[in-house]
Amino acid sequence: MGVGGNLVAIQASRMSTYLHCWTVPGSVPVTMSGNCPGPCATLCSSDVNSKSARVLVLFVVPGHLLFLFTIHLLQGGHIAMTTTFVICYLCAALLQVVILLNVAGLMVRWLWRRGLDPDNFSIPYLTALGDLLGTGFLALSFRLIQMFNSSGT
């Protein structure tokens, strides 16, 4: 599930480029100067960064379905591609990306206000957090599948 960290690295770099175009480090543009944005603002506002975040979220399901299909064709993995597994996996992937996009928005603003370049500082942390969340959510998905299978037997 390492795709999420890469998608969010794209968003963080895009936000950083936007900030570099409109202002200098330490000064936040008026369009981004509000208080800490809520989770809904990351995906539901009319801001240009919100629009790109929505596009990146739209890539999650098709990208992971292609990944799962490739694994199935290569006969890799040690679990059957059941409907339950695919649904749990896709929910975990979507949750991972939504959380990472929220963290990216907060982190990029925070770093920029402190005069630091978000490209250099946020992307390593976001990809590491993406790996951590992806591994945790995948383990949770396997645990949920195991619980469903044992309760149905």
Rank of each mutant, 00 (worst) to 15 (best):
L65M: 13
D119W: 06
Q96F: 04
N102T: 12
T42S: 13
L138W: 08
L129T: 10
A80I: 10
L132D: 11
L73Y: 04
N49W: 05
A139W: 00
L100I: 03
I99A: 11
N35Y: 08
C88I: 08
W112G: 06
L7D: 07
A9P: 07
L144I: 14
H64A: 01
L140I: 15
L19C: 03
V108Y: 00
S27E: 10
L65D: 02
A93T: 02
V55L: 11
F67D: 12
T135V: 15
S33P: 10
S50W: 07
G152S: 15
L73W: 05
C88E: 13
L73N: 05
I145Q: 11
L116A: 05
C44N: 06
F137S: 04
F85E: 01
G134C: 04
A9E: 03
V28S: 01
P39A: 13
S13A: 14
A128I: 10
F69W: 07
Q75V: 01
S52N: 12
A92F: 04
P124D: 00
N120F: 14
R109W: 06
L126F: 05
V97S: 06
T82G: 10
R143H: 14
V8L: 09
F67T: 07
T84M: 03
R143V: 11
F148L: 14
S50Q: 00
V60E: 01
Y89T: 01
